[in-house]
Nucleic acid binder design. Structure first.
Lengths: 209, 209, 209, 209
DNA sequence: TATGAATGAGCGTTCATTCAT
DNA sequence: GATGAATGAACGCTCATTCAT
């Protein structure tokens, strides 16, 4: 039957959605979240305002789609990292570096991700928010570390949340204050604090990293 | 002369501002930041839209006022803590407990405070945002700890940001997931991780807290 | 009876109306017609907004009153001129000078006078607008001139209207273009044109003024 | 390609702008300048308020457009007259007749054009208001007359302003008083006064009209 | 009588969404 | 499917007017 035609159509539709999402991202970058109107998205995508509604039921759906597209590469990469045969510390390091590098790039996207409670609820996909994903991956790493015997026993879930919160806030502050510390440096400090703590312990070897 | 009348009027005006601010908070809770319209605030406050403008020049001013009202008690309390003659660890503990207790109360306020770039820029007081205040206080505590010799040398500013980010994210997750861990417990885990790190060090006495 | 009290009250009320009208004029000068709000008038008068309504039923009535007050001195002066035992040419000259001097002073008042059809209809007092008054006085002068035999026969009413229109437009243009020709000079040119015309007549003595 | 469609669209858009402008004029006629709200314009045009903004960026632009539409035909005609190979007197006559006929038609437009400072500032086209245009054209005619030797030396600019002011006021008064003198008659009287003046000169042939 | 807080209709403007073509 | 003009509800804000004190 029209199997082929069907395929073609789906492909074309998919390409169109991508194009529109990219346009939306561009608008986001230029005008920020509040300035992201359907008109501007349409213009930026080079299509008519009406066409947007052929591919997305409404603005909400477009936003959700964009959200997914922003997060997706990071998710992919994080899963790649998780799948690697690395020790917990190395995984942690790789994960932190990836997040810092990825989200440091675009302030407006970052704002977009956290903007509003309404949006956040919008962008949840089957109880699996970005937060959930990230923290659960951190949690996995922490558990792996405990099994490996390199991390001492602790509540992995809470520690994972602390880690993620710390990373995100670090990124946010960098952007907010206009600082440009190299991600590498931030990774080092994060690991230093989270692995060893900041307190002198009697037996803590001075100068040890 | 009309000293008394003057006083009364001021009091009434102040009460009105408070009432409107509370209404705004209620709207914020119900509809989120994007849904916080002057109309809704007026309705919620039980006054007319026009009356809002007898007490606040515009929406911006109202939002700033609300922001200040939310943050002020925490700021006061944090300054009280900072002024106490306590060791760094105790101060840290007190500060964490205060934040966890204070901000655990209202989810939407929390969103309001942190997740909107527009608000963030709006609510800066002479380059001194709430973030600035909180992180700089944490930073002070960390430096005090280094001077006291209880904290090992580290970049206090970054560590302060990590701490604050971790605390805030913990609160957010509690609210998001509907968990209700006692603040006391969260404080303990935060201190545990940040003071000692999660890694076994060769000399770290196993099982030690 | 309370004849005296009555009188006093009337006097006080009258003074109040005057004060408010002066305040309104000040506002008019500062903010123009569109910027003339009851709030500003009240502030400028040093009374409360509510008090305005004890002396004027509404904004319309206040505006009418102000209009009268602006026009009144000119009306008085014009009637004084009309009553003087002068020849038509001298009267004309005196009248023109008075108008030019009077209205050259305040641009915003002038705008106020002509602003809007609605206002114009508002400010008519028993079919006797400022225009009516002015043109009818010019008309009288022209008729007097014809009787004196110094003016040749012509339709006095139309000529009066031309004169008044010419004067007003001259004033308006001076204000609009920011020019500052001395009223004396303008009077001279007005008389020159209106008395002798601009055409050479065969018998017109060249160079004659 | 879509050349035709393009054309059609442009035509439709142009027609729409015209329709809206006409509606605006109607509102102007009915409610005066102060009463000209976008809502009323939309109602009068039979479209929604939002549609107005598809054709005019804002109220200002709409007003400017209306202004241009009113003035343009007169400007065209005046330029045609100026370009004709006529003597100064004939040009003057033609110009006066045109103005009287053109502006006699709509009172409210007239009000609109002249009596609002806000509009006046709005509708300036490169420092060249309608006033400027009209007076400068009168001025040209007067200078031409002086060169031709039919007008005696005089300050052409001031005289031009007087002429224009006189014409406009005549029109205004006709409309205000509900008189309906034929433009022809008004032209005759204007020329009579401005060309010959109203004063008897010794050599002025008595009885001449 | 003086007050000024409260009002609420109305303003210009925006923008997500629809629908006839 | 693509279009873009039309829509209309909603927004932030103003201000003449009222009324309890």
């Amino acid at each position: 039957m029209s199997n082929l035609a069907e395929r073609c159509r789906e492909l074309a539709a998919s390409a169109m959605k991508d194009g529109i999402a990219n346009a939306a991202l561009e608008v986001l970058r230029q005008y920020g979240y509040t300035g992201m109107t359907m008109e501007r998205v349409a213009d930026s995508a080079g299509v008519s305002k009406g066409s947007l509604y052929n591919y997305f039921r409404n603005k909400e759906e477009l936003i959700s789609f964009v959200f997914e597209r922003i997060v997706e590469p990071a998710v992919q990469e994080s899963q790649r990292i998780m799948a690697q045969p690395l020790g917990a510390v190395q995984k942690l390091e790789a994960m932190l570096r990836m997040l810092l590098e990825y989200f440091s790039q675009h302030r407006s996207l970052f704002d977009f991700l956290f903007h509003d409670a309404a949006i956040r609820e919008l962008c949840m996909n089957s109880r699996r928010t970005k937060h959930d994903l990230a923290t659960s991956q951190f949690e996995s790493i922490l558990r792996q570390g405990m099994q490996e015997g390199v991390f001492r026993p602790h509540e992995a879930k809470l520690a994972a949340e602390m880690l993620f919160g710390a990373v995100m806030f670090l990124i946010e502050r960098q952007l907010e204050l206009g600082e440009r510390r190299p991600p590498e440096e931030l990774v080092r400090h994060l690991l230093d604090v989270f692995l060893h703590g900041i307190r002198f312990s009697p037996s803590f070897p001075a100068g040890a990293e």
